[in-house]
Nucleic acid binder design. Structure first.
Lengths: 290, 290
DNA sequence: GTTCCGCATGAATCGATAG
DNA sequence: ACTATCGATTCATGCGGAA
Protein backbone atom coordinates (compact mmCIF):
# COMPACT_ATOMS: atom_id res chain seq x y z
CA UNK A 1 0.00 0.00 0.00
CA UNK A 2 1.25 3.43 -0.89
CA UNK A 3 0.96 5.85 1.98
CA UNK A 4 3.91 8.23 1.75
CA UNK A 5 2.92 11.73 0.64
CA UNK A 6 -0.76 10.84 0.48
CA UNK A 7 -3.92 12.12 2.16
CA UNK A 8 -5.83 9.02 3.14
CA UNK A 9 -9.55 8.71 3.86
CA UNK A 10 -10.74 6.79 6.89
CA UNK A 11 -10.53 6.36 10.63
CA UNK A 12 -6.87 6.77 11.51
CA UNK A 13 -7.02 3.87 13.96
CA UNK A 14 -7.91 1.58 11.05
CA UNK A 15 -5.97 3.22 8.23
CA UNK A 16 -2.76 3.17 10.23
CA UNK A 17 -2.88 -0.62 10.46
CA UNK A 18 -1.54 -0.68 6.90
CA UNK A 19 1.54 1.31 7.85
CA UNK A 20 4.72 -0.52 8.88
CA UNK A 21 6.18 -0.38 12.38
CA UNK A 22 8.69 2.37 13.20
CA UNK A 23 8.14 4.30 9.99
CA UNK A 24 7.26 7.83 11.13
CA UNK A 25 9.57 10.49 12.63
CA UNK A 26 7.00 12.95 13.92
CA UNK A 27 3.29 12.82 14.62
CA UNK A 28 1.78 16.28 14.91
CA UNK A 29 -1.96 16.57 15.24
CA UNK A 30 -4.85 18.49 16.65
CA UNK A 31 -7.68 15.99 17.08
CA UNK A 32 -11.29 17.08 17.30
CA UNK A 33 -11.76 18.41 20.78
CA UNK A 34 -14.43 16.59 22.65
CA UNK A 35 -17.90 17.47 21.44
CA UNK A 36 -16.74 20.80 20.14
CA UNK A 37 -16.96 20.18 16.45
CA UNK A 38 -20.10 18.12 16.43
CA UNK A 39 -21.23 19.57 13.13
CA UNK A 40 -18.06 18.74 11.30
CA UNK A 41 -16.76 15.61 12.93
CA UNK A 42 -18.90 12.99 14.51
CA UNK A 43 -18.51 14.60 17.89
CA UNK A 44 -17.01 12.69 20.77
CA UNK A 45 -18.51 13.15 24.19
CA UNK A 46 -16.01 14.24 26.84
CA UNK A 47 -16.68 11.20 28.97
CA UNK A 48 -15.87 8.86 26.10
CA UNK A 49 -12.87 10.79 24.87
CA UNK A 50 -10.13 8.70 26.45
CA UNK A 51 -11.69 5.41 25.34
CA UNK A 52 -12.12 6.85 21.85
CA UNK A 53 -8.52 8.05 21.64
CA UNK A 54 -6.57 5.15 23.16
CA UNK A 55 -6.81 2.59 20.32
CA UNK A 56 -5.62 5.28 17.93
CA UNK A 57 -2.74 6.18 20.23
CA UNK A 58 -1.74 2.54 20.21
CA UNK A 59 -1.31 2.67 16.44
CA UNK A 60 0.61 5.95 16.75
CA UNK A 61 2.97 4.21 19.15
CA UNK A 62 3.47 1.35 16.73
CA UNK A 63 4.19 3.37 13.59
CA UNK A 64 6.43 5.90 15.37
CA UNK A 65 10.17 5.32 15.18
CA UNK A 66 11.88 4.83 18.56
CA UNK A 67 13.64 8.17 17.97
CA UNK A 68 10.40 9.87 16.99
CA UNK A 69 8.08 12.27 18.79
CA UNK A 70 4.33 12.71 19.10
CA UNK A 71 3.06 16.26 19.63
CA UNK A 72 -0.60 16.51 20.59
CA UNK A 73 -2.37 19.85 20.39
CA UNK A 74 -5.38 19.73 22.66
CA UNK A 75 -7.32 21.73 25.22
CA UNK A 76 -9.98 20.61 27.63
CA UNK A 77 -13.39 22.10 27.13
CA UNK A 78 -15.58 23.51 29.86
CA UNK A 79 -18.39 21.19 30.95
CA UNK A 80 -20.86 22.37 33.58
CA UNK A 81 -18.63 25.24 34.68
CA UNK A 82 -15.54 23.07 35.07
CA UNK A 83 -12.58 22.15 32.93
CA UNK A 84 -13.19 18.56 31.94
CA UNK A 85 -10.53 16.05 32.95
CA UNK A 86 -10.26 14.07 29.71
CA UNK A 87 -6.90 15.56 28.75
CA UNK A 88 -5.14 14.78 32.00
CA UNK A 89 -6.79 11.35 32.12
CA UNK A 90 -5.50 10.76 28.61
CA UNK A 91 -1.95 11.58 29.67
CA UNK A 92 -2.16 9.06 32.50
CA UNK A 93 -3.68 6.40 30.23
CA UNK A 94 -1.12 6.93 27.48
CA UNK A 95 1.73 6.52 29.96
CA UNK A 96 0.26 3.13 30.86
CA UNK A 97 0.21 2.37 27.15
CA UNK A 98 3.97 2.89 27.03
CA UNK A 99 4.35 6.56 26.15
CA UNK A 100 6.70 8.89 28.01
CA UNK A 101 5.24 12.29 28.84
CA UNK A 102 8.37 14.26 28.08
CA UNK A 103 7.15 17.83 28.11
CA UNK A 104 4.19 20.15 27.83
CA UNK A 105 4.66 23.17 25.60
CA UNK A 106 2.29 26.04 25.93
CA UNK A 107 0.87 27.73 22.88
CA UNK A 108 0.02 31.31 23.76
CA UNK A 109 -2.60 32.33 21.21
CA UNK A 110 -2.08 36.02 20.81
CA UNK A 111 -5.47 36.69 19.26
CA UNK A 112 -8.14 34.52 20.75
CA UNK A 113 -11.80 35.17 20.11
CA UNK A 114 -13.31 37.99 22.12
CA UNK A 115 -15.96 37.03 24.57
CA UNK A 116 -17.14 37.53 28.10
CA UNK A 117 -18.51 35.11 30.63
CA UNK A 118 -19.48 35.84 34.22
CA UNK A 119 -17.12 33.24 35.65
CA UNK A 120 -14.11 33.04 33.35
CA UNK A 121 -11.91 35.01 31.00
CA UNK A 122 -11.03 34.33 27.39
CA UNK A 123 -9.04 31.17 26.89
CA UNK A 124 -5.75 32.26 25.39
CA UNK A 125 -3.59 29.14 25.49
CA UNK A 126 -3.53 25.52 24.44
CA UNK A 127 -1.44 22.55 25.37
CA UNK A 128 1.12 21.02 23.01
CA UNK A 129 1.89 17.79 24.78
CA UNK A 130 5.09 16.00 23.82
CA UNK A 131 5.07 12.21 24.07
CA UNK A 132 7.98 9.94 23.23
CA UNK A 133 8.53 6.27 22.68
CA UNK A 134 11.96 6.26 24.32
CA UNK A 135 14.16 8.62 26.29
CA UNK A 136 16.49 8.92 23.31
CA UNK A 137 14.66 10.90 20.69
CA UNK A 138 15.90 13.21 17.96
CA UNK A 139 15.84 16.93 18.72
CA UNK A 140 17.42 19.60 16.51
CA UNK A 141 17.40 22.60 18.81
CA UNK A 142 19.52 24.80 16.55
CA UNK A 143 16.79 24.74 13.92
CA UNK A 144 14.47 26.87 16.04
CA UNK A 145 16.84 29.35 17.65
CA UNK A 146 15.62 32.91 18.03
CA UNK A 147 17.42 36.27 18.14
CA UNK A 148 18.64 37.25 21.58
CA UNK A 149 16.61 39.92 23.37
CA UNK A 150 17.50 43.58 23.37
CA UNK A 151 18.76 43.29 26.93
CA UNK A 152 21.92 41.65 25.64
CA UNK A 153 23.26 44.74 23.91
CA UNK A 154 23.41 46.68 27.14
CA UNK A 155 24.02 43.84 29.50
CA UNK A 156 26.90 42.16 27.76
CA UNK A 157 28.65 45.38 26.81
CA UNK A 158 30.31 45.68 30.19
CA UNK A 159 30.81 42.65 32.37
CA UNK A 160 31.38 42.85 36.09
CA UNK A 161 33.92 40.85 38.05
CA UNK A 162 31.40 38.19 39.00
CA UNK A 163 30.24 37.94 35.42
CA UNK A 164 33.64 36.60 34.43
CA UNK A 165 33.67 33.74 36.89
CA UNK A 166 31.27 31.02 37.70
CA UNK A 167 28.67 32.43 40.06
CA UNK A 168 26.76 29.86 42.11
CA UNK A 169 23.14 30.44 42.95
CA UNK A 170 22.77 31.44 46.57
CA UNK A 171 19.81 29.22 47.35
CA UNK A 172 21.70 25.98 46.85
CA UNK A 173 19.71 24.93 43.83
CA UNK A 174 22.97 24.03 42.14
CA UNK A 175 22.57 26.76 39.55
CA UNK A 176 25.61 28.65 38.50
CA UNK A 177 26.64 30.59 35.48
CA UNK A 178 29.53 32.33 33.80
CA UNK A 179 28.06 35.23 31.94
CA UNK A 180 31.19 35.90 29.91
CA UNK A 181 30.35 32.74 28.01
CA UNK A 182 27.51 34.62 26.36
CA UNK A 183 29.67 37.18 24.59
CA UNK A 184 29.15 37.33 20.87
CA UNK A 185 25.91 35.42 21.00
CA UNK A 186 23.11 36.72 18.81
CA UNK A 187 20.89 33.65 18.64
CA UNK A 188 19.57 31.87 21.71
CA UNK A 189 17.43 28.83 22.37
CA UNK A 190 13.70 29.37 22.78
CA UNK A 191 11.65 28.30 25.78
CA UNK A 192 8.67 25.98 26.07
CA UNK A 193 6.23 28.88 25.56
CA UNK A 194 5.31 29.50 21.93
CA UNK A 195 3.73 32.79 20.94
CA UNK A 196 1.69 32.56 17.76
CA UNK A 197 -1.55 34.06 16.59
CA UNK A 198 -4.37 31.80 15.49
CA UNK A 199 -5.26 31.54 11.84
CA UNK A 200 -8.22 33.79 11.24
CA UNK A 201 -9.03 33.02 7.64
CA UNK A 202 -11.20 29.98 8.06
CA UNK A 203 -10.55 27.38 5.41
CA UNK A 204 -13.80 25.52 5.84
CA UNK A 205 -12.31 23.90 8.89
CA UNK A 206 -13.45 24.86 12.33
CA UNK A 207 -10.17 24.60 14.23
CA UNK A 208 -7.26 26.05 12.37
CA UNK A 209 -3.76 26.42 13.70
CA UNK A 210 -1.26 28.56 11.82
CA UNK A 211 1.11 26.73 9.50
CA UNK A 212 4.01 28.08 11.56
CA UNK A 213 2.95 25.89 14.47
CA UNK A 214 3.57 22.50 12.82
CA UNK A 215 6.56 24.02 11.08
CA UNK A 216 8.16 24.87 14.41
CA UNK A 217 7.83 21.30 15.65
CA UNK A 218 8.82 19.79 12.30
CA UNK A 219 12.05 21.78 12.38
CA UNK A 220 12.64 20.86 16.00
CA UNK A 221 12.05 17.11 15.76
CA UNK A 222 12.85 16.11 12.16
CA UNK A 223 15.36 16.58 9.36
CA UNK A 224 14.64 17.03 5.65
CA UNK A 225 13.54 13.73 4.15
CA UNK A 226 11.93 12.52 7.38
CA UNK A 227 8.27 11.60 7.57
CA UNK A 228 5.54 13.58 9.35
CA UNK A 229 2.14 12.08 10.15
CA UNK A 230 -1.06 13.94 10.98
CA UNK A 231 -3.84 11.43 11.67
CA UNK A 232 -6.48 14.19 11.92
CA UNK A 233 -5.27 16.25 8.99
CA UNK A 234 -8.33 18.51 8.72
CA UNK A 235 -7.62 21.20 6.15
CA UNK A 236 -4.12 19.89 5.50
CA UNK A 237 -2.01 22.44 7.35
CA UNK A 238 0.47 19.87 8.69
CA UNK A 239 1.01 18.44 5.20
CA UNK A 240 1.59 21.91 3.77
CA UNK A 241 4.15 22.58 6.51
CA UNK A 242 5.92 19.30 5.79
CA UNK A 243 6.10 19.97 2.04
CA UNK A 244 7.43 23.47 2.58
CA UNK A 245 10.18 22.04 4.77
CA UNK A 246 11.04 19.18 2.38
CA UNK A 247 9.72 16.43 4.64
CA UNK A 248 7.46 13.56 3.59
CA UNK A 249 3.90 13.69 4.90
CA UNK A 250 1.08 11.28 5.64
CA UNK A 251 -2.36 12.73 6.30
CA UNK A 252 -5.51 10.94 7.36
CA UNK A 253 -9.04 12.16 7.85
CA UNK A 254 -12.41 10.55 8.41
CA UNK A 255 -14.24 13.26 6.54
CA UNK A 256 -14.16 13.04 2.70
CA UNK A 257 -14.63 16.78 2.40
CA UNK A 258 -11.49 17.48 4.41
CA UNK A 259 -9.57 14.92 2.43
CA UNK A 260 -10.55 16.82 -0.70
CA UNK A 261 -9.58 20.17 0.77
CA UNK A 262 -6.27 18.81 2.01
CA UNK A 263 -5.41 17.24 -1.33
CA UNK A 264 -6.18 20.51 -3.06
CA UNK A 265 -3.98 22.49 -0.69
CA UNK A 266 -1.21 19.95 -1.05
CA UNK A 267 -1.38 20.16 -4.84
CA UNK A 268 -1.40 23.92 -4.70
CA UNK A 269 1.63 23.91 -2.43
CA UNK A 270 3.52 21.43 -4.58
CA UNK A 271 2.82 23.36 -7.77
CA UNK A 272 5.56 25.60 -6.62
CA UNK A 273 4.48 28.86 -5.22
CA UNK A 274 7.66 30.94 -5.28
CA UNK A 275 8.13 30.96 -1.51
CA UNK A 276 8.50 27.22 -1.54
CA UNK A 277 11.54 27.44 -3.74
CA UNK A 278 13.21 29.59 -1.15
CA UNK A 279 12.67 27.09 1.61
CA UNK A 280 13.20 23.95 -0.46
CA UNK A 281 16.58 24.08 -2.03
CA UNK A 282 15.78 21.01 -4.10
CA UNK A 283 12.89 22.81 -5.82
CA UNK A 284 13.15 24.76 -9.05
CA UNK A 285 11.62 28.20 -8.97
CA UNK A 286 8.31 27.93 -10.81
CA UNK A 287 5.97 30.69 -12.00
CA UNK A 288 3.14 31.35 -9.62
CA UNK A 289 0.13 30.03 -11.48
CA UNK A 290 -2.36 31.83 -9.24
CA UNK B 1 -7.93 31.60 68.91
CA UNK B 2 -6.87 34.71 67.10
CA UNK B 3 -5.91 34.01 63.52
CA UNK B 4 -6.97 37.02 61.47
CA UNK B 5 -4.02 39.11 60.28
CA UNK B 6 -1.48 36.77 61.83
CA UNK B 7 1.43 34.72 60.52
CA UNK B 8 1.10 31.35 62.23
CA UNK B 9 3.80 28.74 62.77
CA UNK B 10 3.09 25.10 62.05
CA UNK B 11 1.88 22.55 59.54
CA UNK B 12 -1.06 24.15 57.77
CA UNK B 13 -3.05 20.91 57.88
CA UNK B 14 -2.93 21.07 61.69
CA UNK B 15 -3.02 24.82 62.24
CA UNK B 16 -6.07 25.22 60.05
CA UNK B 17 -8.10 22.95 62.33
CA UNK B 18 -8.45 25.94 64.67
CA UNK B 19 -10.09 28.03 61.97
CA UNK B 20 -13.88 28.07 61.65
CA UNK B 21 -15.74 26.65 58.66
CA UNK B 22 -16.47 28.97 55.73
CA UNK B 23 -14.28 31.81 56.95
CA UNK B 24 -11.89 32.53 54.07
CA UNK B 25 -12.65 34.23 50.74
CA UNK B 26 -9.49 33.36 48.82
CA UNK B 27 -6.71 30.85 49.27
CA UNK B 28 -3.66 31.75 47.20
CA UNK B 29 -0.56 29.68 47.67
CA UNK B 30 2.53 28.24 46.12
CA UNK B 31 3.40 25.08 48.04
CA UNK B 32 6.88 23.59 47.91
CA UNK B 33 7.09 21.77 44.60
CA UNK B 34 7.97 18.15 45.06
CA UNK B 35 11.53 17.72 46.26
CA UNK B 36 12.48 21.08 44.85
CA UNK B 37 13.16 23.19 47.87
CA UNK B 38 14.92 20.48 49.75
CA UNK B 39 17.31 22.91 51.40
CA UNK B 40 14.63 25.16 52.74
CA UNK B 41 11.67 22.86 53.25
CA UNK B 42 11.87 19.20 54.06
CA UNK B 43 11.30 18.12 50.51
CA UNK B 44 8.39 15.93 49.49
CA UNK B 45 9.09 13.10 47.10
CA UNK B 46 7.10 13.30 43.87
CA UNK B 47 5.55 9.91 44.45
CA UNK B 48 4.22 10.94 47.86
CA UNK B 49 3.12 14.40 46.82
CA UNK B 50 -0.59 13.74 46.40
CA UNK B 51 -0.87 11.86 49.69
CA UNK B 52 1.04 14.68 51.39
CA UNK B 53 -1.20 17.38 49.95
CA UNK B 54 -4.68 15.88 50.24
CA UNK B 55 -5.25 16.21 54.02
CA UNK B 56 -4.24 19.85 53.75
CA UNK B 57 -6.60 20.38 50.82
CA UNK B 58 -9.38 18.95 52.95
CA UNK B 59 -8.84 21.70 55.51
CA UNK B 60 -8.69 24.29 52.74
CA UNK B 61 -12.07 23.06 51.54
CA UNK B 62 -13.53 23.34 55.03
CA UNK B 63 -12.34 26.87 55.84
CA UNK B 64 -13.17 28.29 52.41
CA UNK B 65 -16.48 30.09 52.04
CA UNK B 66 -18.86 28.55 49.48
CA UNK B 67 -18.35 31.68 47.37
CA UNK B 68 -14.58 31.51 47.75
CA UNK B 69 -11.78 30.42 45.44
CA UNK B 70 -8.55 28.44 45.81
CA UNK B 71 -5.70 29.35 43.46
CA UNK B 72 -2.81 26.89 43.46
CA UNK B 73 0.53 27.82 41.89
CA UNK B 74 2.41 24.67 41.03
CA UNK B 75 4.52 23.02 38.34
CA UNK B 76 5.57 19.44 37.86
CA UNK B 77 9.28 18.69 37.92
CA UNK B 78 11.12 16.43 35.55
CA UNK B 79 11.88 12.95 36.87
CA UNK B 80 13.89 10.57 34.74
CA UNK B 81 13.41 12.60 31.59
CA UNK B 82 9.63 12.88 32.00
CA UNK B 83 7.25 15.38 33.51
CA UNK B 84 6.02 13.78 36.69
CA UNK B 85 2.28 13.24 37.00
CA UNK B 86 1.75 14.41 40.57
CA UNK B 87 0.06 17.66 39.56
CA UNK B 88 -2.54 16.11 37.27
CA UNK B 89 -3.10 13.30 39.76
CA UNK B 90 -3.68 15.94 42.42
CA UNK B 91 -6.35 17.61 40.28
CA UNK B 92 -8.19 14.30 39.90
CA UNK B 93 -7.89 13.52 43.62
CA UNK B 94 -9.09 16.96 44.69
CA UNK B 95 -12.15 16.65 42.49
CA UNK B 96 -13.01 13.46 44.34
CA UNK B 97 -12.56 15.43 47.55
CA UNK B 98 -15.31 17.79 46.42
CA UNK B 99 -13.44 20.57 44.61
CA UNK B 100 -14.46 21.89 41.21
CA UNK B 101 -11.60 22.43 38.77
CA UNK B 102 -12.90 25.67 37.32
CA UNK B 103 -9.97 26.93 35.31
CA UNK B 104 -6.24 26.81 34.73
CA UNK B 105 -4.46 30.12 34.32
CA UNK B 106 -1.05 30.18 32.77
CA UNK B 107 1.76 32.19 34.34
CA UNK B 108 4.23 33.07 31.63
CA UNK B 109 7.52 33.77 33.42
CA UNK B 110 9.55 35.93 31.11
CA UNK B 111 12.83 35.49 32.93
CA UNK B 112 13.34 31.83 33.63
CA UNK B 113 16.79 30.71 34.69
CA UNK B 114 19.13 30.03 31.78
CA UNK B 115 20.06 26.48 30.96
CA UNK B 116 20.43 24.03 28.11
CA UNK B 117 19.69 20.35 27.87
CA UNK B 118 19.82 18.01 24.93
CA UNK B 119 16.17 17.03 25.21
CA UNK B 120 14.26 20.06 26.47
CA UNK B 121 14.12 23.82 26.53
CA UNK B 122 13.92 26.17 29.47
CA UNK B 123 10.69 25.99 31.41
CA UNK B 124 8.97 29.32 31.05
CA UNK B 125 5.52 28.79 32.50
CA UNK B 126 3.73 27.59 35.61
CA UNK B 127 0.19 26.56 36.37
CA UNK B 128 -2.22 28.67 38.40
CA UNK B 129 -5.02 26.22 39.00
CA UNK B 130 -8.37 27.58 40.09
CA UNK B 131 -10.49 25.37 42.32
CA UNK B 132 -13.91 26.23 43.71
CA UNK B 133 -16.23 24.90 46.33
CA UNK B 134 -19.36 25.68 44.34
CA UNK B 135 -20.30 26.87 40.88
CA UNK B 136 -21.39 30.19 42.31
CA UNK B 137 -18.24 31.95 43.37
CA UNK B 138 -17.42 35.64 43.61
CA UNK B 139 -15.50 37.13 40.70
CA UNK B 140 -14.87 40.85 40.21
CA UNK B 141 -13.69 41.00 36.64
CA UNK B 142 -13.74 44.78 36.41
CA UNK B 143 -10.99 44.98 39.04
CA UNK B 144 -8.40 43.51 36.70
CA UNK B 145 -9.35 45.14 33.43
CA UNK B 146 -6.45 46.39 31.38
CA UNK B 147 -6.17 49.19 28.86
CA UNK B 148 -6.40 47.99 25.33
CA UNK B 149 -3.14 47.64 23.47
CA UNK B 150 0.02 45.74 24.01
CA UNK B 151 2.02 48.69 25.26
CA UNK B 152 -0.13 48.73 28.36
CA UNK B 153 0.57 45.11 29.18
CA UNK B 154 4.26 45.77 28.77
CA UNK B 155 3.99 48.81 30.95
CA UNK B 156 2.20 46.93 33.70
CA UNK B 157 4.63 44.09 33.62
CA UNK B 158 7.65 46.33 33.77
CA UNK B 159 6.58 48.53 36.67
CA UNK B 160 9.32 48.44 39.26
CA UNK B 161 8.60 48.51 42.97
CA UNK B 162 9.34 52.22 43.15
CA UNK B 163 7.17 52.87 40.13
CA UNK B 164 4.39 51.04 41.84
CA UNK B 165 4.70 53.00 45.06
CA UNK B 166 4.47 56.13 43.03
CA UNK B 167 1.83 55.10 40.60
CA UNK B 168 -0.42 52.68 42.30
CA UNK B 169 -2.73 54.82 44.32
CA UNK B 170 -6.22 54.34 43.03
CA UNK B 171 -8.12 52.36 45.62
CA UNK B 172 -9.12 49.01 44.28
CA UNK B 173 -8.60 49.83 40.67
CA UNK B 174 -4.97 48.91 40.80
CA UNK B 175 -3.94 51.35 38.14
CA UNK B 176 -1.45 54.06 38.75
CA UNK B 177 -1.83 57.70 38.00
CA UNK B 178 -0.22 57.40 34.61
CA UNK B 179 -2.21 54.43 33.57
CA UNK B 180 -5.41 55.71 35.11
CA UNK B 181 -5.39 58.33 32.38
CA UNK B 182 -6.56 55.53 30.18
CA UNK B 183 -9.38 54.45 32.43
CA UNK B 184 -12.01 56.27 30.41
CA UNK B 185 -10.78 54.80 27.19
CA UNK B 186 -10.97 51.30 25.91
CA UNK B 187 -10.63 48.88 28.77
CA UNK B 188 -10.73 45.20 28.08
CA UNK B 189 -10.86 42.09 30.18
CA UNK B 190 -7.62 40.16 30.44
CA UNK B 191 -7.23 36.55 29.35
CA UNK B 192 -6.19 33.47 31.28
CA UNK B 193 -2.51 34.02 30.37
CA UNK B 194 -0.59 36.17 32.84
CA UNK B 195 2.75 37.68 31.86
CA UNK B 196 4.96 38.50 34.84
CA UNK B 197 8.65 38.13 35.59
CA UNK B 198 9.81 36.26 38.67
CA UNK B 199 11.19 38.22 41.58
CA UNK B 200 14.97 38.06 41.45
CA UNK B 201 15.95 40.35 44.29
CA UNK B 202 16.68 37.88 47.01
CA UNK B 203 14.35 37.92 49.98
CA UNK B 204 16.03 34.95 51.61
CA UNK B 205 13.47 32.74 49.99
CA UNK B 206 14.28 30.59 47.05
CA UNK B 207 11.02 30.82 45.20
CA UNK B 208 9.56 34.26 45.15
CA UNK B 209 6.65 35.18 42.96
CA UNK B 210 6.17 38.88 42.31
CA UNK B 211 3.73 40.63 44.63
CA UNK B 212 1.68 41.53 41.57
CA UNK B 213 0.74 37.90 41.11
CA UNK B 214 -1.25 37.46 44.35
CA UNK B 215 -2.50 41.02 43.93
CA UNK B 216 -4.03 40.15 40.59
CA UNK B 217 -5.97 37.23 42.03
CA UNK B 218 -6.89 39.11 45.21
CA UNK B 219 -8.46 41.84 43.10
CA UNK B 220 -10.20 39.32 40.91
CA UNK B 221 -11.71 37.13 43.62
CA UNK B 222 -12.14 39.36 46.72
CA UNK B 223 -13.34 42.75 47.86
CA UNK B 224 -11.71 45.03 50.46
CA UNK B 225 -12.30 43.61 53.94
CA UNK B 226 -12.33 40.01 52.72
CA UNK B 227 -9.90 37.41 54.04
CA UNK B 228 -6.99 35.89 52.10
CA UNK B 229 -5.22 32.73 53.29
CA UNK B 230 -1.78 31.52 52.24
CA UNK B 231 -1.01 28.20 53.99
CA UNK B 232 2.57 28.15 52.64
CA UNK B 233 3.34 31.81 53.20
CA UNK B 234 7.10 31.59 52.62
CA UNK B 235 8.52 35.10 52.64
CA UNK B 236 5.11 36.68 53.14
CA UNK B 237 4.39 38.00 49.68
CA UNK B 238 0.69 37.05 49.76
CA UNK B 239 0.22 38.83 53.10
CA UNK B 240 1.92 41.96 51.79
CA UNK B 241 -0.36 41.91 48.76
CA UNK B 242 -3.44 41.52 50.96
CA UNK B 243 -2.42 44.40 53.23
CA UNK B 244 -1.72 46.69 50.29
CA UNK B 245 -5.20 45.97 48.96
CA UNK B 246 -6.94 46.36 52.33
CA UNK B 247 -7.83 42.71 52.74
CA UNK B 248 -7.34 40.62 55.87
CA UNK B 249 -4.67 37.95 55.69
CA UNK B 250 -3.84 34.66 57.35
CA UNK B 251 -0.40 33.20 56.73
CA UNK B 252 0.99 29.84 57.82
CA UNK B 253 4.42 28.30 57.49
CA UNK B 254 6.16 25.27 58.88
CA UNK B 255 9.53 27.01 58.96
CA UNK B 256 10.16 29.39 61.92
CA UNK B 257 12.62 31.40 59.86
CA UNK B 258 10.04 32.14 57.20
CA UNK B 259 7.49 33.03 59.85
CA UNK B 260 9.98 35.60 61.15
CA UNK B 261 10.69 36.99 57.71
CA UNK B 262 7.00 37.20 56.89
CA UNK B 263 6.17 38.96 60.14
CA UNK B 264 8.94 41.46 59.50
CA UNK B 265 7.72 42.19 55.99
CA UNK B 266 4.16 42.51 57.22
CA UNK B 267 5.21 44.96 59.93
CA UNK B 268 7.22 46.95 57.43
CA UNK B 269 4.27 47.10 55.08
CA UNK B 270 1.85 48.10 57.83
CA UNK B 271 4.15 50.79 59.23
CA UNK B 272 2.60 52.98 56.67
CA UNK B 273 4.57 53.63 53.60
CA UNK B 274 2.52 56.50 52.22
CA UNK B 275 1.04 54.57 49.36
CA UNK B 276 -0.57 52.14 51.74
CA UNK B 277 -2.61 54.83 53.39
CA UNK B 278 -3.96 55.77 50.01
CA UNK B 279 -4.94 52.24 49.20
CA UNK B 280 -6.35 51.40 52.61
CA UNK B 281 -9.07 53.83 53.40
CA UNK B 282 -9.25 52.55 56.96
CA UNK B 283 -5.64 53.52 57.62
CA UNK B 284 -4.49 56.85 58.97
CA UNK B 285 -1.68 58.46 57.06
CA UNK B 286 1.43 57.82 59.15
CA UNK B 287 4.85 59.43 58.82
CA UNK B 288 7.26 57.28 56.97
CA UNK B 289 9.75 56.36 59.67
CA UNK B 290 12.44 55.34 57.21
C1' DG C 1 13.45 64.58 40.46
C1' DT C 2 14.81 61.58 36.44
C1' DT C 3 17.41 58.85 33.64
C1' DC C 4 21.16 55.97 33.12
C1' DC C 5 24.21 52.42 34.12
C1' DG C 6 26.43 48.86 36.98
C1' DC C 7 25.40 44.70 38.95
C1' DA C 8 23.26 40.67 41.33
C1' DT C 9 20.34 36.83 41.05
C1' DG C 10 16.46 33.25 40.38
C1' DA C 11 11.14 26.39 41.62
C1' DA C 12 16.59 23.11 36.50
C1' DT C 13 18.17 19.11 34.45
C1' DC C 14 21.41 16.01 32.17
C1' DG C 15 25.31 12.94 31.70
C1' DA C 16 29.37 11.22 33.70
C1' DT C 17 31.54 9.38 37.46
C1' DA C 18 31.91 7.47 41.91
C1' DG C 19 30.16 4.38 45.74
C1' DA D 1 22.42 -2.83 38.61
C1' DC D 2 21.19 0.77 41.36
C1' DT D 3 21.74 5.19 43.69
C1' DA D 4 24.34 9.47 45.07
C1' DT D 5 27.12 13.23 43.92
C1' DC D 6 29.21 16.53 40.82
C1' DG D 7 30.23 19.47 36.87
C1' DA D 8 28.26 21.71 32.79
C1' DT D 9 24.95 24.17 30.39
C1' DT D 10 22.73 29.44 29.52
C1' DC D 11 18.43 34.82 29.93
C1' DA D 12 16.13 38.47 31.37
C1' DT D 13 14.99 41.59 34.80
C1' DG D 14 14.82 44.60 38.91
C1' DC D 15 17.33 47.25 42.33
C1' DG D 16 20.18 50.96 43.75
C1' DG D 17 23.61 54.33 43.32
C1' DA D 18 25.58 57.71 40.17
C1' DA D 19 25.19 61.28 36.80
Amino acid sequence: MKYLNEILLGDCGEVLKSLPNDSVDLIFTSPPYADQRRQTYGGVSPNEYVAWFLPKAEQFLRVLKPTGTFVLNVKERVVDGERHTYVIELILAMRKQGWSWTEEFMWHKKNSYPGKWPNRFRDNWERLIQFNKSKKFNMYQEAVMVPVGDWAKERLAKLSETDRMRDESKVGSGFGKNISNWLGRDMVYPTNVIHMATECSNRNHSAVFPVDLPKWFIRLFTEPGDTVLDPFIGSGTTAVAAIQLARNYVGIDLNPEYVEISRARVAETQLGLPYIAEEREDYQVVENIA
